[in-house]
Design a binder for these strands. Sequence first.
DNA 1: TAGATTGTTAATCGATTAACAATC
DNA 2: TAGATTGTTAATCGATTAACAATC
Lengths: 214, 214
Amino acid sequence: MKKNIPVAVSKRLIRYYRYLLALDMSNVSKVSSNSLSNKMGFTASQIRQDLNHFGGFGQQGYGYNVKTLLNELGTILGVKSSYTAIIIGSGHLGSAIAYNFNFAKRGIHLKAIFDIRVDLIGTDIQGVSIYDIKDLESYMSSNKIDIAVLTLPKKDTIEIVDRLTKCKIKGIWNFSNMELETNKNIVVENVHLGDSLMSLSFNINSHEYPDDNS
Amino acid sequence: MKKNIPVAVSKRLIRYYRYLLALDMSNVSKVSSNSLSNKMGFTASQIRQDLNHFGGFGQQGYGYNVKTLLNELGTILGVKSSYTAIIIGSGHLGSAIAYNFNFAKRGIHLKAIFDIRVDLIGTDIQGVSIYDIKDLESYMSSNKIDIAVLTLPKKDTIEIVDRLTKCKIKGIWNFSNMELETNKNIVVENVHLGDSLMSLSFNINSHEYPDDNS
DNA sequence: TAGATTGTTAATCGATTAACAATC
DNA sequence: TAGATTGTTAATCGATTAACAATC
């Protein structure tokens, strides 16, 4: 479909998608690279360049049709693939994600939650059942699951990754604060909240002591 | 102290810091750009280049002293500044962060949590008291607070940002899924979990349908 | 001292921006 | 058709890598 896409490009595609969703909600039907540029802070040239990594979605003299572009981006970003997901670890963070996070909006169907604590087994969060982690393999063998969200203690993570690998998981959304070692077929997306906070403190710090370079 | 630091550089500094912390824990006292390169996947040249944005922390023929480098990076990243923080919104996500996140490790002191729900006021999470959001201004006037962590519903966010601005907050760690409009003196770090998950699904998707470009 | 490894300059590579012909 | 705006090539800019002199 295309050559290797730089990470910077895919990050921008995601933002375009977010912004186009909002446009579509407000019933805007067409948009030009120039107006996107004004609103989003990227140059019009970059926007056109980015979109043309994947083929021409626009029309000269007109611009881009919002619904068409959303559709194309949705396909590229996997929204159309209707991936399925499970959460592993129903502690504070896992349940916060189950309660608050809108998986459906991103084309993902949250199908189950797993935990080790017996008192939770059989309960549910927003209609999504909590299962015993013992039953992970049997569940996975009868349900097609693409993505596992890891919100469990560090100490249990390696074992779980190993088990998920055997179950042929496709992607891991990793909240366990550690680097995972996985085989090449598993896509890992790490959420490093620690790095994010450090980034904030770096920026405050350099804001406070600005350039006194001579 | 230095010219404008590219975001890519500051992101790497954070990773160096993380890795050096681990080295220091294992009582490793010196490290070369070459060994860092092998372990971390950046080129040795890039590591030296990055560090020299801020001045020479190493010694020719020897390498870098781990504790010295940690110390310098800690200063640059603001770990030494002992920033203080409050969490606003003690829902699932806010309390997950209060329970699980190690602020102290990053040189940040979590001092208070604010919420609107009366039944929570007066309780605490891991020793950090929950206060009534009504009392935000009086609390801020008698306590020096640098950072606010926003884990409250979207609809209340704008108002709270406005109040925090008046209280001269320095930085906002934003989990409310929206772009904030703040004045130039406030540093904002957005955590876009949605974008992170989209990034995962994009990568799974392009993994599944690899380059069939001709 | 000889060996090692930094700090730094120069060369390369890649990503962003500018420009414009194609065309709706 | 004339005006607008894309798609795409070329020019610029910035970031990464290579190389090596300085020096511990």
